[in-house]
């Protein structure tokens, strides 16, 4: 029964990682940029939620505002920081994203507060229902449900809308898409918009579990998401989702099953497993169609 409980925990964490990894992968598949400032989009979303709750906006509306905030911030980030770098090599793009990330962290610390700000989530979200020996936390269940919905929604968007098809085509061959008369700027902006939305959604689920927003909160998630996209196959959306779930499941199960003496080595074990996966499949579990290698 404990195992079942831990499995639910695992899938719930995996769902958040999958959302984050997907956000990274969408941008990477089109622009060839691993956006390390993706985590700061989560932080922005958290602060927007906090601000709008503080202004007395109802919870549901605040969440919508926070999602929109993250999406707009992502588009602004592209316009201000990444557009001037378009066509630059992978390393320059990577360094730009690190710069944006560091800059934002310092702005949050000195402009807002170095101290984490408490966020009170509604009671129903932080309580649990017991079914016999298994306790289903509402937060984790919501996490699983929302990540699945978001993944399905994204799949439908990419498959059936013109912009979605254009984005998939751009991931395969950007130059040909532009020859078809589709605006590169719009495709890239949409990719950032989607990645911002996913970051915002992940932030809401993250906050439901962590109860506070702090200036540095984006660092760990973006690192995990990066690992997930690499395991899955850089640039492959399905790979990112698989990588995210896999990472979450492995982390939680190791935390649950390792004896406490070995527990501090959990992250080392996880990262060793990542190396093992990459040695067996250098392009990831589900490689992108035309993998962009750095």
């Amino acid at each position: 029964m404990i195992l079942l409980q831990q499995l639910i925990n695992a899938v719930s964490l995996g769902g958040v990682y999958a959302l984050l990894a997907l956000g990274l992968a969408i941008v990477f598949s089109i622009v060839g940029l691993i956006n390390f400032a993706h985590g700061e989009l989560m932080t922005i979303s958290g602060y927007v939620l906090l601000a709008s709750l503080a202004m007395g906006v109802p919870f549901a509306a605040s969440v919508a505002v926070a999602l929109a905030g993250a999406a707009l911030a992502a588009v602004a980030m592209e316009r201000i920081a990444f557009r001037p770098m378009r066509g630059a090599d992978v390393t320059s793009l990577l360094l730009t994203s690190f710069a944006v990330s560091s800059l934002l962290k310092v702005v949050f610390q000195n402009g807002i507060s170095a101290r984490p700000q408490p966020v009170s989530m509604p009671g129903w979200m932080t309580s649990a229902t017991a079914f016999g020996p298994v306790t289903l936390g509402h937060g984790p269940m919501l996490c699983i449900a929302l990540s699945i919905c978001a993944l399905i929604g994204l799949e439908l968007f990419l498959r059936y809308t013109t912009m979605g098809i254009a984005m998939r085509a751009a991931a395969a061959d950007f130059d040909v898409v532009r020859l078809m008369g589709i605006s590169a700027g719009r495709i890239i902006a949409t990719a950032f918009l989607l990645s911002g939305l996913l970051a915002g959604l992940a932030a809401m689920l993250w906050l439901a579990q962590r109860a506070s927003v702090d200036p540095l909160m984006g660092f760990t998630p973006v690192l995990k998401a990066f690992i997930a996209t690499v395991i899955g196959g850089l640039g492959s959306l399905r790979g990112a989702v698989l990588g995210g779930f896999l990472l979450g499941v492995v982390e939680v199960l190791l935390q649950a099953l390792l004896p406490s003496d070995i527990l501090p080595y959990r992250d080392a074990i996880v990262l060793s497993a990542v190396i093992a996966v990459l040695m067996a499949r250098p392009n990831g579990l589900i490689p992108a169609v035309n993998a962009q290698r750095s």
């Binding site: 831990q6 925990n9 936390g137 760990t220 998630p221 995990k224 939680v252 199960l253 649950a256």
Partner: peptide
Amino acid sequence: GQPDFSAEVT
């Protein structure tokens, strides 16, 4: 910095 305490809590 660990995001998830669910395993510990369980």
